[in-house]
Amino acid sequence: QWIQSKREDIVNQMTEACLNQSLDALLSRDLIMKEDYELVSTKPTRTSKVRQLLDTTDIQGEEFAKVIVQKLKDNKQMGLQ
């Protein structure tokens, strides 16, 4: 999976804004449970939030991952090649 192969780059480069947009999009599509949303959003640092989101992606699967990839594209953060 692309996200896993780029995990380190995503953790380093995903902005707080992109992270929040991803969470909002996942929530609005019922792809993330409120508990998982809280787990991510209550982490103390941006990098720990991104790591938690990516860990959740492993469990949730492809549809979940597609939303995150789309948000990275929207925010022009796909220089993660």
Rank of each mutant, 00 (worst) to 15 (best):
I10L: 09
W2M: 07
D74T: 09
V40D: 02
D24E: 14
L26N: 03
D24F: 02
L54M: 03
C18S: 10
L72S: 04
Q4I: 15
E35V: 07
T42A: 13
D55V: 09
A65F: 00
K66D: 07
E63M: 03
Q70S: 11
M33W: 03
Q52T: 09
Q60R: 13
S48C: 09
K71P: 05
R46Q: 05
R51H: 05
F64C: 15
K71C: 13
L53R: 03
A17F: 01
E8Y: 01
N20I: 13
A17N: 11
I32W: 06
V67P: 04
L31D: 06
L31V: 04
E8F: 02
C18I: 07
F64I: 09
T42W: 01
R51F: 00
D58W: 12
V67F: 00
E16L: 09
L23K: 04
V67N: 03
R7K: 14
Q13I: 15
N20R: 12
V50I: 05
N12L: 13
Y37Q: 05
R46T: 14
S28K: 15
D30K: 14
K66G: 11
L27H: 09
V40Y: 06
L39S: 12
E62W: 00
L27P: 08
R51N: 10
L23H: 11
T47F: 06
D9E: 08
K73A: 12
T15H: 00
G61V: 10
C18F: 07
Y37H: 04
E8H: 01
K76T: 12
A17C: 12
I59V: 11
L53Y: 01
D58I: 14
E8A: 08
V11T: 11
T56Q: 13
Q4A: 13
N75Q: 13
D36Y: 04
R29Q: 13
R46M: 07
G79S: 13
L19C: 01
E16W: 07
T47W: 08
S41T: 14
G79V: 11
A65Y: 02
L53Q: 04
D74W: 06
V69K: 08
K34E: 14
I3M: 09
R29F: 15
Q4R: 13
K76W: 08
L23I: 00
Q52H: 06
T47E: 15
K43S: 06
V67W: 00
D74N: 08
M78I: 08
K76R: 11
D9G: 05
I10N: 06
E63R: 07
S22P: 03
V50W: 00
L23N: 09
E35A: 10
D55I: 11
P44A: 11
L53M: 05
A65D: 04
V69F: 13
V11S: 04
N20S: 13
S5R: 12
V11W: 00
V50R: 01
I10P: 03
S48Y: 03
D30E: 13
K73F: 04
F64Y: 06
R29I: 01
N75V: 07
S28A: 14
Q13V: 11
D55K: 06
D74F: 06
L72G: 05
K71D: 07
N20C: 04
P44C: 06
T45N: 13
R46A: 03
E62F: 02
T15R: 00
S22A: 14
T57S: 15
Q13F: 08
K49I: 04
E16P: 05
Q52L: 04
Y37T: 08
